[in-house]
Simulated assay, not measured.
Amino acid sequence: MTISPALKVFAWLSFLAEVIIIGTGGAVRLTGSGLGCDQWPLCTPGSLVPTEEMGIHGLIEFGNRTMTGAVGILALVVLLLSLAAAGGRRSVVPALLFALGGVVLAAGSYAIFYLTGLGSVGAVVMSVVLLLAVLVGAIHSLRTTPVRRDLLTLAWVVLAGVMAQAVVGGSAVLTGLNPFIVGFHYASSLVLVCVTAAFLVRMYAVTGPRELATPRWYLILVHVTSLVLAITIVFGILTTGNGPHSGDKNVTRDGFDASLLAHIHSWPGYTLFALALVIVIVAWAKALPTRAWSTAFIAVLTVQIIVGVVQARDALPPLLVGIHMVLAALSAAAYVVTIFRLKRPVTR
């Protein structure tokens, strides 16, 4: 399989878009614009664009929704280019047919609900139908295209994830910005950043069998650290979800104590930093292939910790909270690359 220049360009654009949408999604929440369009996916019963009465909040929410469309288009382009490289027309045509069929069925289902006055329900049904079409198309594609299933699987996961994110985002609006749904929405976006990062790594990797390139105890340490990273992110989401930035001025949080959660969030955070420091020192001492990206990870993590401490002391200014959210995604992406560097192509 030959990786075309176009695939490389769009794969990078897809990764950047997934990072950017975390920033725009954070802007929606941190500016209190989460309900700037409370008639999701319509801002008014007859318009897809924000109205003048909604002011800046409607524009911010609409901008994030527009970014969602861009993320979806880029994911689709990456998938089609990957299919074209792996199987040519025999792989691309069925995928397009599944996509066309899904769009037709989704539009029809939405029209039915919209005409009966249930536009919001119709939007959810439309998103679910599109997601099902993607899943069926993915199964068919992976069964009939034996070449570079690793790339195809990652590309399908991103497209399906974008479709699912539309449903989750709509559910957050329809439930009045339920903190758990909003938190899951962010976590899902962060996972998509990691998946697109994994696609980039595999795209440039040499195909074929791989072998362990580090001591086994080091591999175990890296995977244990990934668990600590996940715990740190989870507690960060819970802390933000119970903080002052609920997404709308009329939505309040009456759940966990945000101050207590902030302290608990710091415990795995500092543990993560200590483990990352060990990983970096060992990597450079033994000249392991993880040294470059583990260094990049701890560099981003250090900045993230500094931002986290400053924002906690300054009563959580929205800009710093948003930067903290984006840095979490970048650090997770860097760690994904570090994990992939644990193995190397088998030397023949």
Score class of each variant (00 low, 15 high):
Glu61Arg: 01
Val103Thr: 13
Leu190Phe: 08
Val201Leu: 09
Ala205Ile: 00
Val77Phe: 01
Ile237Ala: 04
Phe256Arg: 00
Gly69Leu: 08
Val206Asn: 10
Ser189Ala: 15
Val104Thr: 09
Gly25Glu: 11
Ile22Pro: 13
Leu260Asp: 11
Ala332Asn: 06
Leu261Ala: 05
Gly34Ser: 03
Ala133His: 09
Ala328Phe: 03
Ser82His: 02
Ala86Arg: 02
Gly69Ile: 07
Val251Ser: 08
Ile22Tyr: 09
Ala312Cys: 01
Arg29Leu: 12
Ala95Cys: 11
Ala172Tyr: 02
Ala75Gly: 11
Ser189Pro: 05
Leu154Met: 10
Ala86Leu: 08
Val49Thr: 12
Phe340Lys: 01
Glu52His: 13
Gly322His: 01
Ala230His: 01
Val147Met: 08
His265Cys: 06
Ser141Val: 01
Ser82Thr: 14
Gly119Cys: 05
His265Tyr: 05
Ser14Trp: 03
Gln165Gly: 10
Val134Arg: 13
Thr68Asn: 07
Leu35Ile: 03
Ile231Tyr: 07
Phe273Cys: 07
Val162Cys: 04
Ala299Lys: 03
Leu118Glu: 15
Lys8Phe: 01
Gly32Trp: 05
Lys286Ile: 00
Cys37Lys: 05
Ser226Ile: 00
Gln165Tyr: 09
Val93His: 10
Leu142Gly: 13
Ala106His: 04
Val206His: 08
Ile281Met: 12
Leu35Ala: 08
Arg90Asp: 12
Pro94Phe: 14
Glu18Gly: 14
Ala84Met: 09
Val201Ala: 15
Leu301Gly: 06
Gly137Val: 01
Arg89Phe: 06
Val92Thr: 07
Gly72Phe: 12
Val124Lys: 12
Val346Ala: 09
Ile20Met: 14
Leu154Thr: 00
Ala155Met: 05
Val228Ile: 10
Trp12Ile: 01
Val326Thr: 04
Thr116Leu: 11
Gly169Pro: 04
Val224Cys: 14
Met325Ile: 06
Arg89Ile: 06
Val9Cys: 05
Trp217Val: 00
Val337Asp: 13
Val78Arg: 08
Thr144Asp: 08
Ala75Gln: 03
Tyr186Phe: 15
His265Trp: 02
Ala166Thr: 09
Ile237Leu: 09
Cys43Phe: 03
Ser294Val: 07
Ser171Met: 14
Val251Asp: 03
Val222Tyr: 09
Asp248His: 11
Leu30Cys: 09
Pro50Phe: 05
Ala312Trp: 02
Ala276Val: 07
Leu212Ala: 10
Leu212Ser: 13
Thr31Met: 07
Leu275Asp: 05
Leu261Arg: 00
Phe256Glu: 11
Val193Leu: 14
Val326Leu: 13
Ile233Phe: 15
Val125Leu: 06
Val303Ser: 13
Gly46Arg: 07
Val224Glu: 13
Ser127Ile: 00
Ser259Met: 05
Trp40Thr: 10
Leu7Lys: 06
Ala17Leu: 11
Leu13Ala: 11
Arg348Leu: 05
Gly169Glu: 07
Gly36Lys: 01
Ser189Leu: 14
Asp314Ser: 04
Thr51Ser: 15
Arg216Pro: 00
Ile22Met: 15
Tyr204Asn: 10
Gly241Cys: 05
Tyr110Glu: 10
Leu105Val: 09
Val182Ala: 04
Gly55Pro: 02
Lys249Ala: 14
Leu81Gly: 07
Arg348Phe: 04
Leu80Thr: 06
Leu330Lys: 03
Arg89Ala: 13
Ser171Thr: 12
Leu177Gly: 07
Ala85Ile: 02
Ala213Cys: 08
Arg143Asp: 08
Ala276Gln: 11
Gln304Pro: 00
Leu79His: 05
Glu61Tyr: 03
Gly137Trp: 04
Ala329Asp: 09
